[in-house]
Nucleic acid binder design. Structure first.
Length: 657
RNA sequence: GGCGGGAUAGCUCAGUCGGUCAGAGCGAACGGCUCAUAAUCGUUAGGUCGAGGGUUCGAGUCCCUCUCCCGCUACCA
């Protein structure tokens, strides 16, 4: 063994013309999990993500919008960066394909492959789709001369141009050889078989340049051409290592340990073209290329093809946050947990918000959160808040050890949901243990020794859990440790195997990590999350939400919202709710009930006869057992609501535009 | 069209070499407990394991046919 190789893991670089959604969030999350897990084990890690910006479409879209293309893609790239920051993904590097370091590497790759003869000139004459940046053969094109891609169908252009081609066909045998000899190279196995089938069918050389329209990476010495966006994009994994200018960093990072991605870009690009390019360059191949499945809509509809239907991860976070009252950071972790836990190993998984929320209650609120809460509470009550110095139960210790082993095994197989399942075996075993031991009876009978063993066992189990959940839920891990009274700092994996490592901890005041969600009804998700927050009871410990630029919407999107002026006729507090007021409002000749989370800022009396702005066509929703038929608009100032009013009195029901 | 993967309790899914495999979790019902977040613990699900046929002493578990879904690939010059 020579110097220690860094565990280098990558996401694909994301097309900036899409937006972040729970699919790309999952890919990135898997990488984050692996990084955090490896780090915890003491390994050197490097986690790369980024954006793919050289597509011709971007330039055209920028022109339409009348903006400079680079500014345009920069803004879009920032959307991704903010989304990933908001999800607490601890990437080490964010690469953009418009950066000089990437351009430099891509051009060098091109030069070298040109020199070795892996690239050659060829003439292409035929049909070209600008949108897909793809050439089509004569036989693929129908008489209408529209793009054969069913999801595109844009008019094709007749082109004749000389381009550079990559000798992909020459690498089929070498690829197959490597794939057969290295079972861990392409995973999971079902996907590997698809690749083998694809290669055995015979590969075709790939056209890797396009004519230069002012956007993209110019071909060295041929400024009238740019490098095809896919050829350019894959090279980002190499660019980020500093190849060829920074041999030291390169040596530390390359080859990549894992290229993680969703399945649609696996077979042709990451499992075929990219490895062939690497072989042609004479570089070592990545250790593992892994493809996970898609989120598909409920009812068997294939929503994965178009990810437009999938929500933005931070929208879901806001929803969890406002429904549960969990802190923002813990809501982020809740979604991280749910994404990893709901995505099954082999294939596509169903995305259903209701199922997510159900699992939130079951796994996070009832099982994990409550286990911590009841333990800390009992230590407070029976031991004056100091963990006893007893030996924890060895039988539970054996169960914990077994789960820790299982966890480690399945993580190395990329079965994240199975890892979390293993951790939750501990949770449910200890919940059962508590009932079996009945510490409340032990306390009454003054059976001190048994009580000490019981509570020490609980504390120890939670301490181990705080380590096991850390890769998926870094904030929740810290919260568990805070509750137990453990010193701050990164948990270490080795401590998961030290049963009985803690004693005499001073526990914190018990505070539920994950409050239960009362209403699981799945609302249509595109509900504006920020406005909704002002409506919901706000927990006092809510951390300020990470600022998130919302994506641009069209006028049509805006026009769907029916905003109206309303007169407040009646305002009264809602029983058992600190922050909710029940408003009876007049909208034109209609009277409605609206619930608003403004009780902390406004007295019912002072609201009477005030004019407000409401969203009149929001789907009704039950809050605290009362149906709210609309939503009041208010500014959100650090969680406090400030209602919006017309400047002068106007007729109730007047539309707002 | 070819190749591959699915179809298992209301929901999401496990089921390795054919014989306590008909399972888990959630949801629901009932009961226990009271430390806890109306939590937790226990019991309860009688589901023709997509349809039909076959091999076998015995088949979700192997073979054939069919239906539906999904993926990869090819579009028949």
């Amino acid at each position: 063994m020579t110097s220690r190789k860094t565990y280098y893991i990558t996401t694909p670089i994301y097309y900036v013309n899409g937006r972040p959604h729970i699919g790309s969030a999952l890919t990135t999350l898997c990488c984050d999990f692996l990084k955090r897990f490896r780090m915890m084990r003491g390994e050197d890690t490097w986690f790369l993500t980024g954006t793919d910006e050289n597509a011709t479409k971007n330039q055209e879209a920028a022109q339409e919008a009348g903006v400079d293309p680079l500014d345009f893609v920069t803004r879009l790239a920032d959307d991704f960066r903010q989304a990933w920051d908001g999800m607490a993904y601890a990437y080490d590097d964010f690469i953009r394909t418009t950066e000089p370091r990437h351009v430099r590497t891509v051009q060098e790759v091109f030069r070298r492959l040109r020199d070795t003869g892996d690239l050659y000139r060829g003439t292409y004459e035929g049909w070209y789709c600008v949108s897909d940046e793809t050439f089509f053969r004569e036989t693929d094109v129908r008489d209408d001369h529209l793009c054969p891609n069913e999801e595109c169908r844009k008019p094709l252009r007749r082109v004749q141009e000389e381009n550079w081609f990559f000798r992909l066909a020459a690498y089929g045998d070498r690829l197959l050889e490597h794939i057969e000899a290295n079972p861990e190279f392409l995973q999971p196995a079902s996907r590997r078989n698809e690749v083998i089938g694809f290669i055995k069918q015979g590969l075709r050389d790939a056209s890797v340049t396009r004519s230069n329209n002012g956007w993209g990476i110019p071909v060295p010495d041929e400024p009238d051409k740019v490098i095809y966006v896919w050829f350019d994009a894959l090279i980002n994994y190499l660019s980020a290592t500093g190849w060829p200018d920074d041999p030291e960093t390169y040596a530390r990072l390359w080859p990549a340990s894992v290229h993680m991605m969703a399945k649609e870009i696996f077979v042709r690009f990451h499992a075929t073209l990219w490895p062939a390019m690497i072989i042609a360059l004479g570089l070592p191949l990545p250790q593992t290329v892994y493809a996970h499945g898609w989120w598909v809509g409920s009812g068997g509809k294939k929503e994965g093809k178009r990810t437009g239907g999938l929500p933005h991860p931070l929208e879901l976070v806001r929803d969890i946050e406002s429904r549960s009252g969990a802190s923002h950071e813990l809501a982020v972790d809740a979604l991280r947990y749910l994404l990893l836990r709901e995505m099954v190993f082999h294939g596509d998984s169903e995305f259903s918000e209701e199922n997510f929320l159900r699992r939130y209650n079951a796994d996070l609120a009832n099982d994990l959160g409550n286990l911590c809460n009841r333990t800390v509470s009992m230590v407070g009550r029976y031991c004056d808040g100091v963990g006893p110095a007893a030996q924890p139960d060895p039988e539970i210790g054996a169960v914990v050890a077994e789960c820790v082993r299982e966890y480690e095994t399945v993580v190395d197989e990329f079965r994240f949901h199975a890892a979390l399942e293993a951790a939750w075996k501990i949770v449910s075993r200890v919940n059962r243990y508590i009932v079996d031991q009945a510490p409340w009876n032990l306390a009454k009978a003054d059976r001190r020794d048994e009580l000490d063993v019981t509570l020490t066992t609980c504390i120890e189990a939670i301490r181990v859990l705080s380590i096991l959940v850390a890769p998926a839920m870094p904030h929740a891990s810290a919260a568990l440790r805070q509750q137990l009274g453990l010193a701050e700092g990164q948990p270490q994996w080795a401590d998961a195997s030290r049963w009985g490592a803690s004693s005499g901890l001073r526990v914190a005041t018990p505070r539920p990590l994950y409050p239960r969600i009362q209403d699981l009804t799945a609302e249509p998700l595109p509900t504006p999350p920020e406005k909704e927050r002002a409506m919901e009871p706000q927990p006092t410990d809510t951390v300020a939400a990470a600022p998130t630029a919302k994506p641009t919407i069209t006028y049509d999107d805006f026009a769907k919202i029916d905003l109206r002026i309303a007169d407040i006729i009646e305002a009264e507090p809602v029983p058992n709710a600190d922050k909710l007021l029940k408003l009876t409002v007049q909208v034109g000749d209609e009277t409605r009930t609206i619930l608003a989370g403004i009780a902390e800022m406004y007295e019912p009396a002072e609201l009477k006869s005030k004019q407000i702005v409401i969203v009149a066509n929001l789907a009704p929703r039950k809050l605290r057992g009362i149906e709210s038929q609309g939503m009041l608009l208010a500014a959100d100032v650090d969680g406090q609501a400030v209602i919006l009013q017309p400047e002068t009195e106007v007729p109730a029901g007047a539309p707002v535009r």
